[in-house]
Design a protein around this nucleic acid. Structure first.
Lengths: 217, 217
DNA sequence: ACGTTAAATTTTGTATACAAATAGAGCAGC
DNA sequence: GCTGCTCTATTTGTATACAAAATTTAACGT
């Protein structure tokens, strides 16, 4: 059987990612423990792990809260994502096998077909978001850099980043899908400069779609 | 008084960073606890924290070991450092104040003076390494991106990266100091492309100095 | 001698107990 | 009504106890 601490960790994590916990909600160890019928020990471990990932903030003797992110945080996150995922494309392109290219192409097709159906349906947006994550994750995996993957992971687990498509306009969605298709074409052509440039543009476009105009600071 | 867990964390951490613990040495909770006269609980917390940072590896029911890094790991680390620190330069340049430029210039001067003295002395290399860390840290701080700082931090705490200068040839050291000076000059001129390019070259040069020629894979 | 299996020991994972710190309620004073 | 205080209740931090898993040791047969 899996460790209890890991189970707790995953439960709290998905709860945060799905936005089921309100912003900066207090996470009391005892409460979580009794609600799950376990002791505080594994709860503590899970919370510390989430803190290390940046999903919760803990202050000494004051406990843990769900982390929250302001506009400046999101700007930082998308800026870094644009750099790191672009780099992933650069590394992945010369390594890409025919099978991997085909895999990415299939996801593009699936997403395009999904986008043509009624988007107001409950199931469409999650389906798109899931495939989007697979698409980006696959390219990161293809980059063959464990640490690059880990760095990106620590960035994108912020709820708003996970739920990107929820705030997309139809035009933004179309542009996003075109970017995906163009990235695969660039990789197919073995052109890592092209591929990485489109990826960078793709993430920065998402940034603007979510944040609106750049803040002057 | 500070939390015991934090104290333990720092002790183990510096022990690893100073290379006082042999590679992949087992870290038994009970042993560490009794040797410090405390219970296992804070030791556990410290070990999990170090695991999240990548300084130790933990396997379920099998405990923690000091992490070790092979050539491929180091290559990944320096590649990512080159990208992220270069980005830090890009962000820092337009924000740099006169005082900050002067601060960096002073470090450059100090390091140049240290390099002219007898390098075989016990104290010279640590003094250089400390100033090197301050130099890079200052630029990261000037970039004003909390997350960028955190990402870089998780990369550079690997012992070999911390102790870079220990393996430098005199020529490599000179080149490194020239890079530092050039970076400051570029920032002073407000040229973020120049500054970030030199920084990228600076880190990639360090990579080659430490790893030798690129592995063909 | 060698390998295999089974007990014994060690070590981790979780629960519980207690101490230390913090937050909050209630009340005094202005 | 508001501010600042004390005391209580809550909550975190650490220690200890026990259960579960893994590693080591020992025994046994071939």
């Amino acid at each position: 059987m899996a460790k209890i601490a890991t189970t707790v960790y995953e439960q709290i994590r998905t709860a945060i990612l799905n936005g089921e916990l309100s912003n900066s909600e207090r996470l009391v160890e005892e409460d979580l423990a009794v609600s799950m019928g376990i002791s505080r020990t594994p709860v503590r471990e899970a919370l510390r792990r989430l803190a290390a990932e940046g999903l919760v903030d803990v202050s000494p003797n004051r406990g843990a809260r769900v982390a929250e992110w302001d506009v400046h945080d999101l700007r930082e996150i998308f800026d870094l994502r644009s750099i790191l995922e672009s780099h992933a494309c650069e590394l992945a392109t010369p390594r890409a096998s025919a099978a991997e290219i085909e895999f990415l192409e299939n996801i593009c097709t699936e997403m395009e077909e999904l986008a043509e159906t009624d988007l107001s349906s409950e199931t469409r947006l999650p389906a798109l978001a899931a495939r989007n994550r697979i698409f980006h994750g696959k390219i990161i995996e293809m980059s063959n850099s464990t640490r690059l993957g880990l760095l990106i992971e620590t960035l994108i687990h912020v709820p708003i980043v996970m739920q990107t498509y929820k705030v997309y306009s139809p035009e933004a969605l179309q542009r996003s899908l075109h970017h995906h298709r163009e990235i695969v074409n660039a990789m197919k052509a073995g052109d890592e400069v092209w591929a990485s440039s489109v990826m960078r543009a793709h993430v920065l476009a998402a940034r603007e779609e979510i944040l609106g105009q750049p803040d002057p600071e």
